[in-house]
């Protein structure tokens, strides 16, 4: 690979146990890195605090979806059965929120679910099929039983040698360099 064309993406450190990466994450946080992440085969309990992450905002997407669903449902039913084409059906009122409720309720849940899912995709920037991490063969173990920590080159505190030393000395990890294509 031509090193002139490749600019560094960051440094990838590999760990064997959950406790090791947990500790390393706390050190990274305390060292003041911002452009870094931890890659684990399953979510590790407490890792958000260890990394210093804020609470996930997915819930707002859910709320917006749900509100839209309920409001759309009620309005649609009122418009269709009362306003646009009122028909005498079974001697029942032309509109009441009672009979409109089940459908509005289902629409609330449906749109909440869409909001949640697509909100999560949006926040996580998925789908994202290209990722420099995938170029590392070792990284495939991140979905099996290994734990990785990557500090990206775009981090203002990043320095190729200093960061490498930080990871090997302080975090006791095997470190490799990642490049962007």
């Amino acid at each position: 690979m031509n090193s002139n064309r490749s600019k560094p993406h960051g440094l990838l450190a590999e760990f064997h146990t959950a406790a090791d990466i947990f500790e390393a994450a706390m050190r990274c946080r305390d060292a003041g890195f911002t452009q870094w992440d931890v890659y684990t085969p399953f979510p590790i309990h407490g890792m958000d605090e260890a990394m210093g992450l804020r609470k996930s905002p997915v819930g707002w997407f859910t709320f917006c979806g749900g509100f839209t669903g309920f409001f759309t449902g009620m309005t649609m039913i009122w418009y269709m059965n009362k306003f646009d084409y009122p028909l005498v059906v079974g001697g029942k009122p032309l509109f009441t929120p009672l009979y409109a409720f089940p459908v509005s309720y289902e629409m609330t849940i449906l749109l909440s679910a869409f909001g949640t899912l697509f909100g999560m995709f949006f926040l996580n920037q998925l789908p994202k099929f290209y990722n420099p991490l995938f170029k590392n063969e070792r990284f495939k173990k991140s979905t099996d039983d290994r734990f990785f920590l990557c500090i990206e080159a775009t981090d203002p505190k990043f320095g190729m040698d200093a960061t490498r030393t930080f990871l090997t000395e302080k975090c006791h990890a095997a470190v490799v360099e990642l490049v962007e294509d």
Binding site: A25, D37, V38, Y39, T40, P41, P43, I44, M47, D48, M51, L53, K55, S56, V58, G59, T62, I109, S112, A113, T116, L117, G119, M120, F121, L123, N124, L126, P127, K128, F129, Y130, N131, L133, F134, S142, T143
Partner: peptide, 26 residues
């Protein structure tokens, strides 16, 4: 294709777990 480029990033896990919890709640 269907794993959408999932890396196991903890920043992703954070949103993912929240979304999963909300979906369970829904």
């Amino acid at each position: 294709l269907f794993s959408l480029g999932w890396t196991g990033s903890n920043r992703h896990w954070s949103n993912y777990e929240k979304a999963y919890l909300l979906l369970a709640g829904l």
